[in-house]
Computed example of a mutant assay.
Amino acid sequence: MSKQIKLIATAAMGLESVVADEVRNLGYEVEVDNGKVIFEAPISAIPRCNLWLRTADRVKLVVGEFTATTFDELFEGTKALPWENYISEEGQFPVSGKSVKSTLFSVPDCQKIVKKAIAERLKRKYGMVSNMPETGAMYKVEVSLLKDTALLTLDTSGVGLHKRGYRVGQGEAPLKETMAAALVLLTNWRPEYTLLDPFCGSGTILIEAALIGQNIAPGFNREFDAEAWSFIRNKHWNDAFEEAEDLAKYDQKLDITGTDIDHKMIEIAKANSIEAGLGDLINWKQMQVSDLTIKQENGYIIANPPYGQRIGDLDEVKKMYADMGAVMKQHPSWSVYVLTAYEAFEKEYGQQATKKRKLFNGFIKTDYYQYFGKKTKGDM
């Protein structure tokens, strides 16, 4: 097998540049496209990227790419790829698919053809007559057809990378861990600064911030499908985990506080932070935003407050925004970052944002309102 492989880190719409920066920070050159970041790297990048990428959804290994306008072309193109370099004799290889603006628009048919082509290739290479046993490691195949170009990949991550393994409870509209990490990385918060989330919910933003502050790899306490793949040496995984352990800054002090009006959410946030190994690093308090008392001269707010999209909630949400604006007006040196789908947020908050960035929270179109704090003498 070639020493270099092609990988794709998939990204939510609007986060491609954030994911690209993360991949670059790991030492790989990237090409950015819609919904994905493409890069070539050694096999050791599979463990490292799965462990370290905070904002990517998955890490996929590119097996091949070719033009396919007929089912025969799809079958032969798939069969010509070196699947035996990746999938073991006992490997399970379920096939998922998608088709956009392609002649081959029937996804179920494409999946069946790809499955059959891979099976024929593997049976010939492994000298088998009967069907593949598929009792071993999991190799999730995806066939993606875009404008008659077929892209065949293997999902190295397994469960999506947003599943860090620490969420034991959540609210009605939980924020994905990957999005929460992105909200932190899109600010210039540093671990020596105070951080506050007055609508903390289940605590995801602050837990991700604490992981960033102590440089803890987000995938450190979970498993990945590729850990069972024989072509990736155990040494690559051991080295990646050792690197993550060596780079963690467990002694880094943090001043992070989460508040919420709902005492049940505070209990859930506490439980999640304990599960993440951060129980003593984050302060949790039941409190409404109008009662916030800020003593520090400089600090940051990063929040994903309710959007008021359910009937009867809007008036309450508008008051929350106004209350936060009134409190923060007294602290102009603080920077405030708020994600919301409510288009008149600035009006209720009482101040126009310094900057806005369009993001998608799941399928909800949102804006990330950014208010940059005025520098004080102690911050210059």
Rank of each mutant, 00 (worst) to 15 (best):
L81K: 07
T78K: 02
Q111C: 15
W83T: 03
A119M: 08
T67L: 11
G77E: 09
S96Y: 13
V62A: 09
G64E: 00
E65V: 03
R124P: 01
G91L: 00
L61D: 00
G97I: 01
F93Q: 06
Y86D: 03
I118W: 12
T78G: 09
K98N: 15
A119C: 12
T70V: 09
Q111M: 11
K79Y: 14
V59S: 01
Q92P: 06
K112R: 15
Y86I: 02
S106W: 08
F105S: 13
L122N: 06
R58I: 04
F71C: 07
A80C: 12
V100N: 12
G91K: 01
W83N: 03
S96H: 12
K60T: 00
T78Q: 07
E90I: 04
G64S: 00
E90H: 09
P82V: 10
I118Q: 08
E84Y: 05
T103F: 14
K115E: 10
I113T: 13
A119D: 07
K101R: 15
D72A: 05
E89G: 05
R124F: 11
A56L: 09
I113E: 01
P108T: 04
F75Y: 15
G91T: 01
D57K: 13
G91H: 02
F71M: 13
D72H: 04
V129Q: 12
F71Y: 14
F66K: 01
V100P: 03
G127Q: 08
F93I: 11
P94D: 11
K123R: 15
K125L: 04
V129D: 12
V129G: 08
D72I: 00
G91Q: 00
A80Q: 14
K101F: 10
V129I: 11
F66M: 03
K123L: 06
V62N: 05
S106N: 15
V59R: 00
V63F: 04
T103W: 12
P82W: 08
L61A: 01
P94C: 09
N85A: 14
K116V: 02
R121D: 10
K98A: 13
L104E: 02
F75H: 14
E89Q: 14
F75M: 10
F93K: 07
A56S: 11
L122M: 11
V62Q: 08
Y86M: 04
T55I: 06
E84S: 04
T55C: 11
L104A: 05
A119V: 10
F93G: 05
A80V: 11
K98P: 06
K115A: 04
W83E: 05
F71A: 09
D72P: 00
V107C: 02
T55R: 05
A119L: 10
I113S: 03
E76G: 07
F75L: 07
T103K: 15
T67P: 00
K116S: 04
S99H: 14
E65R: 11
D72N: 05
V129P: 07
T67Q: 14
A56W: 08
V95C: 07
E89L: 13
I113N: 02
T103A: 15
G127N: 10
F71H: 12
T67Y: 15
L61Y: 00
V62K: 05
K98L: 09
S99V: 12
V114I: 02
V114G: 06
L122P: 01
K123E: 02
F75W: 09
K101G: 07
S88D: 12
